[in-house]
């Protein structure tokens, strides 16, 4: 073996074909695994590319990462605390408006993001044309069009993952600028948060979540720090 090993998380809205993509990529090389002291089990599978092994983790399908439900917390915690090497955001090409919403939230949390626009075949039939280059410039991360059902766009996808983990592509994920009033408040607490939690999690993101009143995240951070024994 001796393959280099990378963890790739899949997130997406429900019904975007995220699991279809996961299944198509990993074939039958799947199992459900627990992660670091958690009781939550997630489907995992692996795919070999060049001399690397990508371990794919199929996170629960969610509309957002605001911890409105257990699934959302699971997905959020994985991205924030388990820090996958790359996060694939799987979007439904036929309802991008709502789907981008989730992509933007992921990009607030982590840098190495690939936007996978799935169901592209269906979107084309419906007369939806997606200009991935333009989106790529706007979002600062790779944007790919795929069809998981028809296994279209996979070589490009694997190659992009490969180039991100090699450092050949530097993601500069787009950071939302909020209205001035909110930005001011973020600024007020961001520094303090950074002092407490360091670089483990994006302080700006935590600041935003705190302003949003996301208490469960605070509990989770405290728990995570205790687990790692440096709090």
């Amino acid at each position: 073996m001796g393959n280099e090993y990378y963890r790739i998380a899949l997130v997406g809205n429900p019904n975007t074909g995220k699991s279809t993509l996961f299944n198509a990529l990993t074939g039958l090389r799947q199992h459900t695994g627990n992660w670091a002291g958690k009781t939550v089990s997630l489907a995992q599978g692996s795919v070999d590319f060049k001399n690397k092994t990508f371990q794919l983790i199929d996170l629960p399908g969610t509309y957002s990462l605001f911890s409105n439900s257990k699934d959302e917390e699971v997905a959020r915690n994985y991205i924030a605390f388990e820090k996958p090497d790359v996060t694939l955001v799987v979007l439904d090409a036929t309802s991008l408006e709502r789907n981008f919403n989730l992509a933007l939230q992921v990009m607030e949390m982590t840098t190495n993001v690939i936007i996978c626009i799935n169901l592209i075949d269906i979107a084309e039939k419906q007369g939806i044309e997606i200009h991935e280059k333009r989106l790529m410039n706007l979002m600062g991360v790779p944007v790919l069009k795929i069809s998981a059902r028809n296994k279209l766009g996979f070589p490009m996808l694997l190659d992009t993952i490969d180039r991100i983990v090699n450092g050949d592509i530097k993601c500069q994920s787009f950071q939302l600028k909020y209205p001035e009033e909110i930005e001011k408040k973020i600024l007020k607490i961001e520094q303090q948060i950074h002092e407490i939690i360091g670089d483990t999690v994006s302080a700006r993101w935590v600041a935003l979540r705190i302003l949003d009143g996301d208490e469960s995240l605070i509990n989770e951070i405290t728990k995570q720090f205790k687990l790692r024994g440096d709090y």
Partner: peptide, 29 residues
């Protein structure tokens, strides 16, 4: 610092940005 308005504004802003992304990057024939 947090108000109900802020929460709404955050989501509203996310949506507006998503909408703009669609406006610029997607065309509906």
């Amino acid at each position: 610092l947090s108000t109900k308005q802020i929460r709404d504004d955050i989501v509203q802003h996310l949506y507006e940005t998503s909408y703009q992304l669609c406006q610029e990057g997607v065309s509906y024939k």
